[in-house]
Design a protein around this nucleic acid. Structure first.
Lengths: 109, 109
DNA sequence: AGTCGTACTTCATCTGTCGTAGTAATTTTA
DNA sequence: TAAAATTACTACGACAGATGAAGTACGACT
C-alpha cells in the first residue's frame, strides 16, 4: 500500500489523466484508480471530492450533468485546456522528481 | 524546482539516507541535499528541523553534541537501527510508488 | 423490509510545510 | 576594524491537503 503523503502531490494529476480521454464522475474515477493501480492505491472519497473542488477552482476541470431520468444524479467532469497544460507540466515534474528521489534511495534494499 | 507536496513523503527518507554513512547536523544536511540534487531540491530550514524532531520522536535518529570549544554549538544526529529499518521500508515503498504513478503519467509529454 | 452498492456532501481534525522573525557565533570583505 | 555575510539554529503561527466520521439519497437484489 502507498502512503498518502507520497501520492499527495499527484492526486490531481491522476484524476486529470483519467479525464484526458473521457469525461467521467467521482465514483467511476475512484474505481479506475483502484483498478489501474492493481489495488495498490485506493483514493479516499473525501480526498477525491476535495480534489475535484480544487481542480474546479483552478479551472482545470468543468462539471456538468448528463440528463438521466433515474439513479442518483451524477456530477460529470470534463478536463479543460488549462487542465491539459497543467497535466503536461506535472508529467515533466514527475520525471525530475523521480531522478532526484532516486539519488536518495538505495535500490538494493 | 520540485514542489514540496511531491517530496513531502520523502523528506524523512532523504535525511535518513544522509545519516546512513556519517553522523551529521542540520546545516550540513541541507547543503548535501542541495548539492546531491543539483540544486533541484532545496529543503527549507523549518522543514528540516521539524523533520529532525519527528525522526527523534520516532526514535529513528539520536542527537548528541561533539565537544567543540568554539563556534555555535551544533546538534549532531546519528541514525538508529529503527531508522535504518524504516529507511529500507521507504525504499521499497518508493519502487512501488514509481510503478503506480508511472501508470498515470504520459512520458511523451 | 433490509441490506448492498452507487454517488455523493458536510464537518472537524491532523500532519507536514513554510513564512516570518529572532538569536548567536564566526568568517569574509570593504 | 567595522559591517555584512555565513553558519547554526529555535519559536510561532498560518495554511493546504488528506482523512475519519457521519449523513443523505436513490436503485437493485434477496
Amino acid at each position: 500500500m502507498i502512503s498518502s503523503d507520497v501520492i499527495r502531490g499527484y492526486n490531481d494529476t491522476i484524476i486529470l489523466y483519467l479525464l484526458l480521454d473521457n469525461d467521467s464522475y467521482g465514483y467511476e474515477i475512484s474505481k479506475k484508480i483502484k483498478n489501474l493501480s492493481d489495488e495498490k492505491y485506493v483514493i479516499k472519497e473525501t480526498t477525491l471530492y476535495s480534489a475535484f473542488n480544487r481542480l474546479m477552482k483552478n479551472n482545470y476541470i468543468e462539471s456538468f450533468y448528463k440528463d438521466e431520468t433515474f439513479g442518483k444524479r451524477r456530477t460529470y467532469y470534463r478536463i479543460t485546456q488549462a487542465g491539459i497544460d497543467y497535466y503536461k507540466e506535472k508529467c515533466k515534474e514527475w520525471e525530475l522528481t523521480k531522478e532526484v528521489i532516486n539519488r536518495f534511495v538505495k535500490e538494493e534494499y
